[in-house]
Nucleic acid binder design. Structure first.
Length: 258
DNA sequence: ATGGCCCGTAGAACGGGA
């Protein structure tokens, strides 16, 4: 089973790339973030023609998440019934569904880079609520994966220049502690496990030749329960998607499970 | 150089991203 996550930075702006990528990589599941569109603007038809089911929640301009899958998804939870701030009333950042017996949770964690901003406290509260949801609704024994843009630099080796980021909501200790808390519940960063040396990134700033200089961050994660992590045979980042005409600033992260 | 780019919403700049 091939599971991938990709912050596309506007699904409409990235539609050609998305369809081509599905055809080339044929993932069983692809979690998307930053759709930046409402439901009536989402390209359901193009995605269906590419051979994929899609469930999504969206809003105008910002956020928005989707789960694309070859097999039909079941038990779809658009987070409307979850406790704030995970509910999608304000911000569409979480959707979950079951595919081929695996519980898929697609997340777009708030940025909150500026530690003096409201966004930072919102990020901490959101991560707390995510942990609460796991403890209340799921078991670490089941086959479960959280995929998405976590906006967390979990380890120093996941940033080209980690020091300045430690003073931000991306890499500060408080946010890392929230990440570690999720892991303690029973989640494994499968890419990090396969690449303990780090130095591999999923995001590069559009400015200052960030990609050309490889000044990146790994802030997109595939977090699985241990039963699933044991079956992970490979995990990689498709840097090619950061190249060429109109790339997203994020590249897809892919994990293979036997 | 506390900027540089890109997106959507605008219908000009601006908020948000990280």
């Amino acid at each position: 089973m091939k599971i991938a996550t990709w912050n596309v930075n506007s699904v409409r702006s990235r539609l050609d790339r998305l369809i081509a990528w599905l055809g080339e990589h044929k993932p069983d599941v692809l979690c998307l973030q930053e759709l930046k569109c409402q439901e009536h603007q989402f390209p359901f038809e193009d995605i269906a023609r590419a051979g994929y089911h899609a469930v999504m929640i969206g809003q105008k301009s910002y956020n928005g998440v989707a789960i694309l899958s070859r097999a039909e998804p079941g038990d779809i939870k658009p987070a409307t019934d979850l406790a704030a701030p995970l509910d999608s009333d304000d911000q569409a950042r979480l959707i979950s569904a079951s595919v081929d017996g695996v519980r898929i949770i697609c997340v777009y964690v708030p940025n909150g880079s500026d530690m003096t901003s409201d966004g930072y406290s919102y990020k901490l509260a959101w991560l707390d609520a995510l942990g609460d949801m796991l403890r209340q609704e799921y078991s670490p024994e089941e086959s479960l994966v959280i995929c998405g843009d976590t906006n967390i630099i979990a380890r120093d080796c996941d940033a080209a220049n980690p020091q300045p980021w430690r003073a931000t909501g991306m890499g500060c200790q408080a946010v890392r502690n929230k990440f570690d808390e999720l892991c303690r519940w029973g989640l494994v960063d499968v890419f990090g496990q396969k690449h303990p040396e780090g130095g591999l990134f999923s995001w590069w700033d559009y400015r200052q030749l960030g990609f050309a200089k490889n000044r990146g961050l790994r802030i997109d994660h595939i977090l699985t329960t241990r039963t699933l992590a044991k079956k992970c045979t490979d995990a990689y980042i498709d840097r090619d998607q950061r190249k060429g005409h109109k790339p997203s600033d994020h590249a897809p992260v892919i994990a293979i499970f036997e």
